[in-house]
Write a protein that binds this DNA or RNA. Structure first.
Lengths: 155, 155
DNA sequence: TCTGGGACTGATAACGATTCTCACCCTCGG
DNA sequence: CCGAGGGTGAGAATCGTTATCAGTCCCAGA
């Protein structure tokens, strides 16, 4: 269990829990124990998790429910689905619940970790992206930046 | 981008064809007509293509051969596999056969188009990425930058 | 508190993109 | 011209993901 920044005791962090609850309510959905467990599991890594990793973190979760609830949480905007190069989809809490960040994808073991650019770089990048997209008549919602390489464990 | 200069009779543009041939030879693989057709098909769009799009471009290709040959071409380094948000994998010619670029991914229709950042932005980004990765003990091979939003057709 | 209905769950079946299998073809060296 | 691999194509098999469905739980109203 590695809550990124704050060291706290509650399963999913009270702030995030509240946020998720709100998002679910807004869509007439309930925040059940299974969903709370799922959100807590997603927080336990320092990067996006695969279904199997989630099931591994919390054995009390049923596979079909995990798939279904991840779908719900994604529609609600609490969770983001990520596809890397390998065959498994990965999920993580949405950015507005955490912080803007990017991914370090290890092409050897397939693991994904988070990292962030410093603010000035991030904003000038953002500006450049919007400019580039505009000339193509493309309306940007978000950007996604991944680094491919080998992680410390594999290197 | 498509064959930049001369319009020729050969399916895939002589320069790229030669490059691919070399890559295949290096791995003791042949550059058969089916593979040439495949490479030509990949050049026909201005972005990565799905298997179905490829089959659509050239009806003479067999699905299983397309899958197999894309795998071969990927191992050889002539083709890159890309996974977006939707359920289909997409393939495009490797960067050293074309130019460094990024992707505009339409979250509405799922289509993918290419775009490039200007050089100064690209290199300062690259530098920032390496710096960020170094502090995590991560060795960067490449980066991948996608813009998510709606394309002109869907907007 | 009781009750009804709708949301949620979990086991299982179905789905579908991708991969594997295998018999046949084609190409290249001798 | 022949033989040995690599390539091909049609279909079967794989496996992550989705859909189904009966049973359970939770909330609102009586």
């Amino acid at each position: 269990m590695t809550a990124p920044t704050h060291a706290d005791e509650t399963p999913a962090g009270p702030d995030i829990d509240d946020e998720v609850l709100l998002l679910l309510r807004r869509a007439d959905q309930r925040y059940t124990t299974g969903r709370r467990r799922l959100v807590a599991a997603l927080q336990s890594g320092d990067g996006p998790l695969t279904i199997n990793q989630i099931l591994d973190v919390d054995r009390s979760l049923a596979q079909s429910s995990v798939y279904r609830n991840l779908m719900v949480l994604e529609q609600v905007g609490a969770v983001v689905r990520i596809v890397t190069r390998d065959e498994f989809a990965r999920y993580e809490l949405a950015e507005h619940l955490t912080e803007h960040h990017h991914h370090l994808i290890c092409t050897s073991c397939g693991d994904v970790a988070d990292f962030a650019l410093d603010d000035s770089m991030e904003s000038s990048l953002d500006e450049a992206l919007h400019k580039a997209a505009d000339t193509r008549g493309f309306a940007v919602d978000a950007h996604r930046l991944d680094l491919l390489g080998t992680c410390g464990d594999c290197g």
